[in-house]
Design a protein around this nucleic acid. Structure first.
Lengths: 258, 258
DNA sequence: TTAGACACTCACGTAGGGTGAGAGTCAAGT
DNA sequence: ACTTGACTCTCACCCTACGTGAGTGTCTAA
């Protein structure tokens, strides 16, 4: 029995995504139809519809399309994991709106003379979109301060590049978190650590350097254990996971980097 | 005593909006600094900071910049009214997230075999971005069905044009709602009705027609009273306001259009 | 005066589409 | 078999809202 398929118009109607957009997604390899008929018509199946949903969730989080594709095409990608991740991010979005509502209420009160408001407070809750803010986050979260070239690399890194790396890092960490019940030297775990290492190297600005920076990588893992600011997943500090990461990173460095 | 002013970097830091963006906003007349020094430096004051906040709220609602400018530059613009409007829209956004969370939960349950899910339901809560959806809304809300050229005008109207008209219409209706305690023939009220008339004409595709369409305009006002689908403000049906509108539109037509 | 921080304008480029033109395909009706 | 309206395709131009870099001028403290 053949799988049920849907024309591009049908998918557009179901999903609310324009036909032009669906073609764009095909073009860039983000969402390819199940079938191209002899007439070049696109026909989509169930898996494509599910993938489109994932795309829309990631879009809701302002992830660029190229990054979405990378994430979805990763062999380690898992739909359920991603859905849980989206859930958390949507809750964050909701919190943001709460904050905006608060700012709004305060502004009204300020205008009506009921309270005094600082100028800074006018903008509480709005997204900060400057490259500078992104760099600050990198410093706080990814231990780039301790690496020589990092300051320069960070200054020259473009905002989009940083966002892409960040999204992929989050994705990798999520996957690692799901495997943290396994031994840290598990093959799959170590594969993900390898990925993590390469992303960190991009952030450090040393991705093409001969020096493998094994010790720095180990040091970063240790930093996760020592400093409670480094909550890696679930928006809270998780000691067990930090230790898991540190051990896995240390093992990876010793096996692959020395 | 001179007003306190802020450099562009300061405003960027306070607001999270990039310097480049602030320059762009100046360039397009959306947010002009209080002062340009002899050196061409931009200095912003209190009113500019408040205006920037308004811009950010409108941006949060995906209103195009040119439209934001039109709204803010309208003599009838009122900050408090706008803030109340933003409040409502943010609550709507929050509802949308709730819906997405629901969709997400259902998807998880569907994958885990706990329930059966239609393909359409995969996309509940996501924005519908097709021009077709916009046209449908126009038909439902602005009485375009009853006007001859409207179908053709609607088909040829671009999505952005429609969004712009829609935003301005909402804004005009908000202002009218605030004046609905006044007589419907009040000068200010009639000024806003004039605005409303011109926007409706754009939607009808008859903005440059010699025929004033007085009767159709009156008929549209009557439609608001007769059909409970036409909730104009506050996301609910408001009979008093609908009647106010109908009367004001009738009066306007009789005085200005015949 | 110097030097570093800051600000300016100009201009190129990009992401993610919207839109229109022109042509081919499908399927039901005659 | 032909017609016709709905559907689909590709191509190509355009747009919004910036990001980014280059080059140059301005400010201010030392």
């Amino acid at each position: 029995m053949e799988e049920q398929t849907f024309s591009i118009r049908h998918v557009s109607a179901m999903s609310g995504v324009s036909i032009r957009t669906l073609r764009l997604y095909d073009e860039i390899g983000l969402l390819q139809p199940l079938v191209r008929t002899e007439a070049r018509y696109r026909l989509y199946g169930k898996n494509e519809l599910l993938r489109l949903q994932q795309i829309l969730f990631y879009k809701e989080l302002d992830i660029p399309l190229a990054t979405i594709r990378k994430i979805l095409d990763n062999p380690a990608f898992d739909t359920l994991t991603a859905l849980y991740h989206h859930h958390k991010e949507l809750l964050k979005k909701k919190d943001k709106i709460e904050k905006l509502l608060q700012t709004l209420t305060h502004t009204i009160q300020s205008i009506e003379g009921e309270l005094q408001m600082n100028y800074d407070d006018l903008y509480q809750g709005f997204d900060t979109v400057t490259a500078e803010a992104y760099r600050k986050e990198a410093k706080e979260k990814y231990g780039v301060e301790s690496v020589e070239q990092s300051e320069h690399a960070l200054l020259s890194m473009k905002k989009k590049d940083f966002q892409t790396l960040q999204a992929m890092m989050r994705n990798t960490l999520e996957n690692l978190f799901n495997l943290s019940h396994k031994p840290m030297n598990d093959e799959e775990v170590q594969g993900l650590i390898h990925e993590y290492y390469r992303i960190i190297r991009e952030l450090w600005g040393t991705s093409s350097s001969e020096d493998s920076q094994a010790e720095q990588f180990i040091g970063l893992g240790q930093l996760y254990c020592d400093d409670e600011r480094f909550y890696l997943v679930n928006n809270c500090y998780n000691k067990e996971f930090a230790e898991f990461m540190a051990a896995a990173m240390k093992y990876y460095a010793e096996k692959q980097l020395y």
